[in-house]
Design a protein around this nucleic acid. Structure first.
Lengths: 167, 167
DNA sequence: CGGAACGTTCAGAACATCCTGAACGTACCA
DNA sequence: TGGTACGTTCAGGATGTTCTGAACGTTCCG
């Protein structure tokens, strides 16, 4: 008699489902939401096998899922002496988690995003943009406008990250 | 001699490409980024046919793309007397666009997200969560914790929307 | 040393999303 | 009234993403 999945209490099952949907619709992957949701309602740490079993996902998904969640500090690995399994528990400080996720999904793009603009500006400066002919000035102005916006966005971003950090 | 695509100036082509990639990686769809990017660098309004042609996308994509962008106020429809085509131009106020996109991708979830929590809380209140047995209090506490976070998140969200609005 | 228990990896299947293009509706004009 | 020029829709094909599960590496134990 294999210990089948679907033995979760109704409340937990529904919560996990919703966490999965929410995670997916925010673009972080359904499984991550499910794992976090399950651990969030677990009064004690759970092993990878528990996750496979409780959520009906594969070993691979569980393994990669917890790794990603660890990177965001959404879960912690717990060692139990004399037990070779890895156990995990949820970090309940959601603000921190959200911040970490945002930093690594949005923040990175904001910081690298200037490169292309500079390059294009340089291209226009040389004759490289010769085929722009009559629109040259307009295009240059718009690129400049975008650069300004980008700079402002970076500021807002940094300060708002700090604000959330204050909680 | 069909007027083929790929007649865009190099600078424009690269900008459009990048806009497409950025849009995609932020989860709003590559085509939307391309259309907006193209219009952003266009000194005059463009028709749907222009978009199909310049970006190498289908009529359907162009049509649905501009509709979505209109909803976010990212582009404006321009009427030209005596011309049956619809023309579009980009709204250059990116802050407004970002705000509109966020409102409709994140804001909505924040406002609807309480429903499930309330329901589950009620279920625990009745005997419905009987199979939770010894974990009942822990689960209830975690649900409450989440409710608190949710309330706080709504506040931060509303005020930060307002802040960006101030420019 | 051999084998058991575990975590990790990754090719490819399963699934979801996005885009195309043909069919259609509508407005206009001769 | 028929024809043309346009915009819209949506079934289904094309593309991209996520998940599975078998193969493998490692650690531990007898």
């Amino acid at each position: 008699m294999t210990p089948s999945a679907h033995e979760l209490p109704t409340v937990v099952r529904r919560f996990v489902e919703d966490a999965g949907n929410t995670a997916q619709s925010l673009g972080v992957g359904r499984v991550l939401g499910q794992i976090y949701g399950y651990l969030y309602l677990s009064p004690r740490p759970r092993s990878l096998a528990d996750l496979e079993n409780a959520l009906g996902i594969s070993k691979g998904s569980a393994s990669m899922g917890v790794r990603q969640l660890e990177q965001w500090n959404a879960v912690r690995k717990i060692w139990v002496r004399g037990d070779r399994k890895d156990y995990y528990e949820a970090n309940e400080w959601l603000g921190e988690i959200v911040r970490n996720i945002l930093r690594d999904m949005v923040g990175s793009k904001l910081s690298t995003g200037t490169a292309l603009l500079d390059e294009l500006k340089a291209d226009i400066g040389n004759g490289a943009g010769g085929d722009l002919a009559p629109d040259r000035d307009f295009v240059a102005a718009r690129l400049q406008h975008l650069r300004d916006f980008h700079a402002k966005a970076q500021k807002v971003w940094n300060s708002s990250i700090v604000r959330m950090l204050l909680k």
